[in-house]
Design a binder for these strands. Structure first.
Lengths: 343, 343
DNA sequence: CTGAAAGCGCTTACAG
DNA sequence: CTGAAAGCGCTTACAG
């Protein structure tokens, strides 16, 4: 509306005029100082300071057309698991002089498609997308425009796509193996609704793999889905205890969820870990501070952000990239131990 | 480097050529469709689709010079208390078609000054700064360039500055009052290092105010500072229990910190809340899931983000703004109760 | 070492 | 309803 917005902002021109030189020289002073005579440079720099001059980013990148802004589409996952990823991505990108803009749409392929469009309209030169389940139109646009992009934490990355993924299946293996080595035989799995969460599904698959390798299994009904709410841990737990009272070990899809399960266990006077062991995934900040401290498989979300920054930069520079797969790591704390009744 | 980066990107020109019209008409079709004949419009829109055309954000905003990107400087506070603020800010800004870019420097006025400069160079048209302790050069630059900016959660906002603040003092009042009403008489305060955290200091002041109003106080040495680490809660607690064994209520500077304190209390066989009550600040996601669930004063960090978005938009539109003060709210859960020994 | 000129991709009065 | 032209603020060959 207000087009007469008088910006009290000096331009290259103003600086040039004040210094009695041409705009070209001011520009050079700022971008390649060694091409300018010291005397001229000093004079210009002084004026730059006096006038609080700052180059206009839009004009500069219009001229340079060098990719500078990275858009990230990170759909909301309820418990903001990826805020660490976003934060580390931002820091790492900043080191490369790249700017991050992020959009957190609802978890839905159409919503994330439009989120991506908006990011592109806002000037994103490259895209980082969470997961692989995106609208085919989006993939087509990306290919057509030849836009650098990569997938973060996909489970089945489309052929040839650049990606940095977390080995969720391995995370499942690790969690299950830990319990097996402790001597557990009867397991249950508690997760929130996994409809929209292929990552959680993959961890479950990993757990199954591992169990099977030892001739063990997850009884039917020993897998429970509940939306992530304050009492969902309790509901899930009651269900399992009713149907599978022999359970000595529970694998939980996330640390948040685990909190609810531990509470419920406590209310039922069931001791963790001596009666029932619990392992989970993520290793959130609070996991080591709780009581008991949570044994969990660290999914390395920060590392994902750092690696994604490195990879997107290579893509922008037209360098070859190979997929990066991040290996999760077990953090043994206080919610797991040997089963009580060892036959 | 690679200047021959062949961008497979169509421009307004390409679309115009393909449609057999002038660039002006294409531009109008996209920005004010009603100024263009339906037939022309349809033809153009079709080509736009075929060519996957997306306007160049830099060129557009260079021409329009309408503020579109907001920079936020949110120094790292160890326990990422403001990630909720950033997230809600991002969402709210997006609704206004504003783009957020954020920088999280170390907590240091020079570091945040340079962070602000970088944001400006990256194209920020307005700034949101956490707290009020910024380099005077930064304030001067902001004033000189007439840049819209606001302060988030300042304690002593500079005269006339736009800001959305949290009533940290009131938060202190609320926490103390809750304990007082429960009948507590002997209090201790545990916080992490408050050197760089005027907000935590202000909460402490609030606690003192309230205590004093009831003729109570915080004994010397009943205030402990420890860096926020896994065992700092324990160290702080031991100190307090040694010097002030009569303590029945502890006020903790954050929910994270509280976790450590509860653990330590538990290890010392001191029951929470029946032996000692604990209140804290923040109301982090996990606070209601822990065991016991944490009684805490919600500092409303998300609301801060939303309000900041609204205010910065007004500033950009040259509208008048008045400071917004957000009132904290007590969440009573399970870590507080009446003192055991009520004389 | 410095300047004049062209141009990055758009938008928008101004004519017609 | 549409087009030619100017210009947003920069950068960078190209001359000198």
């Amino acid at each position: 509306m207000n087009k007469t917005r008088q910006k009290n902002v000096s331009t290259l021109h103003d600086v040039a005029a004040a210094a009695g030189v041409s705009p070209s020289t001011v520009s050079r002073t700022l971008t390649r100082p060694d091409m300018v005579a010291e005397e001229t440079r000093d004079k210009i720099l002084k004026i730059v300071g006096q006038l609080h001059y700052l180059p206009d980013a839009n004009a500069r990148s219009l001229k340079l057309s060098k990719p500078a802004v990275i858009g990230a589409v990170i759909p909301k996952s309820g418990i903001s698991a990826f805020s660490q990823t976003i934060s580390s991505l931002n820091d790492a990108l900043d080191l490369f002089d790249l700017t991050l803009i992020v959009s957190q749409p609802e978890a839905d392929s159409q919503a994330s498609r439009y989120a991506a469009y908006r990011l592109l309209e806002k000037g994103a030169d490259a895209l980082i997308l969470l997961g692989e389940e995106h609208a085919s139109e989006l993939y087509r646009l990306l290919e057509y425009r030849n836009l650098p992009y990569l997938l973060i934490s996909p489970i089945n990355p489309p052929h040839e796509s650049a990606h940095v993924s977390i080995n969720h299946r391995k995370a499942g293996h690790i969690a299950a193996k830990h319990l097996i080595e402790l001597g557990h035989k009867k397991f249950a799995y508690i997760g929130s609704s996994m409809r929209n969460n292929p990552r959680a599904l993959e961890r479950l698959a990993g757990v199954r793999d591992e169990l099977q390798a030892y001739g063990l299994g997850l009884a039917k009904g020993a897998i429970t889905n509940q939306p992530h709410r304050i009492d969902s841990g309790k509901i899930a737990l009651k269900y399992i205890l009713t149907n599978h009272p022999e359970t000595t070990a529970i694998i939980c899809t996330s640390d948040y969820y685990t909190l609810g399960v531990i509470r419920a266990l406590h209310e039922l006077q069931i001791n963790v870990p001596s009666d029932i062991s619990v392992v989970s995934f993520n290793n959130n900040d609070f996991a080591s501070f709780t009581m008991p401290a949570i044994t969990t498989v660290d999914l390395k979300y920060e590392e994902v952000g750092r690696e994604a920054a490195i990879m997107i930069r290579k893509l922008i520079n037209k360098e070859k990239v190979s997929p990066v797969i991040i290996e999760p790591e077990l953090c043994i704390r206080e919610t797991t131990t040997y089963p009580k009744i060892d036959i």
